[in-house]
Design a protein around this nucleic acid. Structure first.
Length: 321
RNA sequence: CCAAUCUGUUAAAAGAC
């Protein structure tokens, strides 16, 4: 019973809801925790209907259950229902409050974010970070800075988000200062700097950051590949993608393919695009999604291969829109 | 503390300017 939730969560993170469900069904005794993990699995894969169904079937709910449900509505973009359930739930934890706060921040609803923040009984590090983000996303970088400086206990996440906030608002130097002031850095810090230099058009320094960073994850790879593709270094993007494909630590994901297909499209290299697209499923077990098809159709159309583009659309496993 | 919340990578088009 204790490990069922953990196992299910592992499956859920990998997008393997069905496996999570199997573990759940095989558990001799289903606790609130395993029910909630199952609910979360549906929420994480974006299946709101299943999530709601799961919620209704549960024998008991607690504050975590409700919060996961609220989060499911947030992920589905159902702001009203999220708030509705948030207000309905019998108790709210700081995580519940932070969930709603983050929703308003992501929606760019600064006023609601402020109101929520003011209503909170206490502000933990997540609440402070989310509030700084709310300002940064709307371009209020001075206010974000003020929040950052007012934080009682800024965390690595706080610094990382400020690096990105400064970079996205054109303050590369400030991003660098925050990065240099860090005593501990994680992969997010480094990747944020790769993106920061790239956004400022400093590709040489972006590349250098990528090369010297102590550990790279898939986000780091995608970040540099995307930077190459956006700056017209499409051959480098494709080359780096191939390095990633033969890397021992990381495997390309859906984003990697989307980005490399874009690079192929820029250079008009249909052969390369096809071979990438095909290797997605064959070599990497990744199902192309709408965006990949879109990109391929675009490449084929530009190359004048309209019949092949149509053929691809006809063989798509989902309905075109 | 068996589950929930904050940070880095995402194509094209449209719209706005």
């Amino acid at each position: 019973v204790v490990t069922a939730g953990t196992t299910m969560l592992a499956y859920a993170r990998g997008g393997l809801v069905n496996d999570a469900k199997r573990v759940f069904d095989c558990s001799p005794h289903q606790s609130v925790v395993s029910w909630t993990s199952m609910l979360d699995a549906y929420a994480q894969c974006g299946d709101l209907l299943q999530a709601c169904g799961c919620f209704r079937k549960m024998p008991h709910w607690n504050v975590v259950t409700f919060t996961v449900l609220v989060q499911a509505y947030v992920r589905a973009g159902e702001t009203g229902s999220a708030v509705g359930w948030f207000e309905f739930m019998p108790q709210r934890s700081s995580v519940s409050w932070n969930t709603i706060l983050a929703m308003h921040a992501q929606n760019g609803n600064l006023n609601m974010a402020k109101r929520t923040f003011e209503k909170m009984a206490c502000w933990d590090s997540v609440a402070w970070n989310t509030m700084a983000l709310a300002f940064a996303l709307r371009g209020f970088i001075r206010e974000a800075t003020a929040i950052f400086q007012a934080m009682p206990e800024p965390s690595l996440v706080s610094s990382n988000l400020m690096i990105a906030a400064y970079a996205q608002n054109g303050h590369l130097q400030k991003a660098c200062s925050v990065f240099e002031a860090l005593e501990q850095r994680d992969t997010v810090s480094w990747t944020s700097m790769v993106a920061a230099f790239a956004q400022a058009g400093e590709m040489a320094r972006a590349k250098e950051m990528f090369q010297v960073m102590p550990r790279k994850d898939i986000w780091s790879w995608n970040s540099i590949i995307s930077a190459f593709a956006k700056s017209g270094h499409d051959r480098q993007a494709i080359e780096t993608f191939h390095e990633l494909s033969s890397d021992g630590q990381c495997r390309p994901d859906e984003v990697s393919f989307l980005v490399v297909l874009t690079a192929c499209s820029h250079v008009g290299c249909m052969k390369e695009a096809w071979s990438c697209f095909n290797s997605m499923e064959v070599d990497h077990g990744l199902k192309p999604i709408k965006e990949h098809y879109c990109c391929m159709v675009d490449i084929l159309s530009r190359a004048g291969q309209l019949s092949r583009a149509e053929e691809l659309l006809d063989n798509m496993p989902f309905l075109p829109d």
